[in-house]
């Protein structure tokens, strides 16, 4: 019992005094996962809308592949990104293995199918005739897509949350492609794993609390936006 209580006490101390190491890890986590989420939004929303709006044979297979991708195990992503970036791998010449860039790439690969799948579902659940109505109002195809995205903004916000939530809490890929290098590629999750294995429960608990708080804070902001947009 003492272990836990002491741990929590120390953890709060670390947070309240803004311990530079803990702070640095937190910022790096936000930077990497934020960048990965942005990239996944870009690719996921555009591709998701495109797949939702187009008709082609084999669409079902593509949709089921995207949906499977939503549950992509991070370790598998980590494995493949590592192989690609390995010194004599296909992209080895870039020399970015064990860098934050590699982590952003891996996290983007994890978040993109999540965003894509939710976008696809969000656009598909809009009434079919809405597209015709928008075109009949004189919209170009691009304007129509933009209006549809605006119409699906609530589920799309859910896509942002799910994407960010997925990568900020992910550890397998980050540790594999980032290497958990102190002050360089060490993020909240990888640090928690390391400190726990070393028996430094106080720091581990502090990092865990920060991780929880971050996840809560981001979701609070997005939920706030979502609820404000809700009709009276």
């Amino acid at each position: 019992m003492d272990l836990i209580l002491e741990g929590i006490k120390k953890a709060f101390w670390l947070i309240v005094t803004l311990d530079p190491e803990v702070l640095g890890i937190t910022f790096l986590s936000l930077q990497i996962s934020g960048a990965a989420t942005l990239i996944s939004l870009f690719i996921g929303i555009s591709t998701g809308v495109m797949v939702a709006l187009s008709r082609f044979s084999g669409k079902r297979i593509i949709v089921s592949l995207i949906n499977t991708g939503m549950g992509l195990p991070p370790v598998v992503v980590g494995l493949f990104v590592t192989i690609f970036l390995w010194r004599n791998g296909p992209l080895g010449f870039l020399g970015i293995l064990y860098t934050p860039t590699a982590m952003i790439i891996a996290q983007s690969v994890i978040a993109t199918p999540i965003v894509m799948g939710i976008t696809l579902a969000a656009i598909q659940q809009l009434p079919q005739k809405l597209r015709l109505q928008i075109l009949a109002l004189g919209a170009t195809r691009l304007q129509m897509v933009w209006i549809l995205i605006k119409e699906a903004k609530l589920p799309l916000l859910a896509a942002v949350m799910a994407g960010f939530g997925g990568v900020i809490s992910e550890v397998g890929a980050s540790i594999m492609v980032g290497g958990n290098i102190k002050g360089y590629s060490r993020v909240l999750t990888t640090a928690t794993v390391m400190e726990t294995s070393r028996g430094n429960f106080d720091i581990a608990i502090a990092l865990g609390i920060i991780l929880l708080l971050l996840a809560y804070l981001i979701n609070l902001i997005l939920t706030q936006i979502q609820q404000r947009e809700r009709p009276r």
């Binding site: 009434p127 005739k129 015709l132 109505q133 009949a136 004189g138 209006i147 605006k150 119409e151 903004k153």
Partner: peptide
Amino acid sequence: RKLAMVFQEPLLFD
């Protein structure tokens, strides 16, 4: 853009 169409459903924007 010289035509306009109204459907059976109102199909209003949110």
